[in-house]
Amino acid sequence: MPMRHPGAILRSLPAGAKLLALAALGACSFAVTAPLPLALALTILCALAIAAGLRPGTLVRQMIPVGVMLAGIFIVHWAAGDSRTGLATVLRALALVAAALVVTHTTRMPAMLESLQRALEPLRRLGIKPAGVAMMVALTIRFIPELLQTAGRIREAQRARGLGRNGLALVVPLLIRTLRNAELVAAALDARGFDPDAPLPPSTVAASATTCYARGTSRGNRR
């Protein structure tokens, strides 16, 4: 059997398994307090991320916000005379971030949302309806580009009135629009006989919503 690309292997694993592995890795990592094995883990995970197709530039860019925070944490440890613990803390956090990036990069969004839907299934007995949750996810994703455009328009209008720096003048109209949109959406759903108890074919909602989001944001950016 020919050797498969590591990225392809990771991509073919079920999302749920990858999420569980990530959680287990996170829990176990706190048992390791020596910097050397943590540095090794960080190196391996970064190599895995790059092998899975993540560009090194993206990897670095994703790590910068956490890195800045971690630098501050290291300085505090170093000042307290325990740079070993400081180094271990920084390496552990970076390794977990790298692991999370590997999972996010090798799992398609619909697969992630589908595993969420499956995880919710046992909660049906507590009154949580998976189809209702799927609808919410779809609506949120669908309306982010919509509201972003609305926000841009309100901002322009308020700037024309000389209120460009007034947070209240921006947030209040945006909120009212959001709530009014919610009324319209609810009426539209009811008119089409939306039933949160109905079993949904998995992934269809999530998949269509993700496509909507991608289309909407690219259009929004060109505005």
Partner: peptide
């Protein structure tokens, strides 16, 4: 209600 569903979803978008 459906209204609650829509409000929760749109607020998350906001």
């Amino acid at each position: 209600t459906t209204r609650d569903t829509a409000q929760i979803a749109l607020f998350a978008a906001l």
